[in-house]
Design a protein around this nucleic acid. Sequence first.
DNA 1: ACCGTGACCCCAT
DNA 2: TATGGGGCCACGG
Length: 112
Amino acid sequence: MPRVDRPDRGQAYASIYGMVARIPKGHVATYGSVARRAGLRSARLVGHALAALPDGSHLPWHRVVNRDGAISLTGGAAEHQRALLEAEGVRFDMRGRIDLHRFGWDDETPLR
DNA sequence: ACCGTGACCCCAT
DNA sequence: TATGGGGCCACGG
């Protein structure tokens, strides 16, 4: 019997991908919120699952950012993600952060 | 099996 | 606002 609070990797990944697919265009969700919505307790697992996506994936992986509203990817990939978001209307401030009060999916509030 | 390393997050100070 | 420490999970050496 699999533990309900710790589903196997396949279940976890499926839940994560399902939630990411629901993020509306022009909005973003955080790793932590995706994890919670998917019934998981690890935000890291979300990042791990997204990193495992094939290049041609239709999933809107770029709509997932960290708690600060910033992009967690490093190097050129970060600029790619930012370009994809800006193309759908998401704005970044001077410090490269997104206002989650404005663009966060479903009442996502930073700072507790 | 142990340890380090992440597309992370939360709390206390 | 900024650190430090702990929790979380998968992977690779």
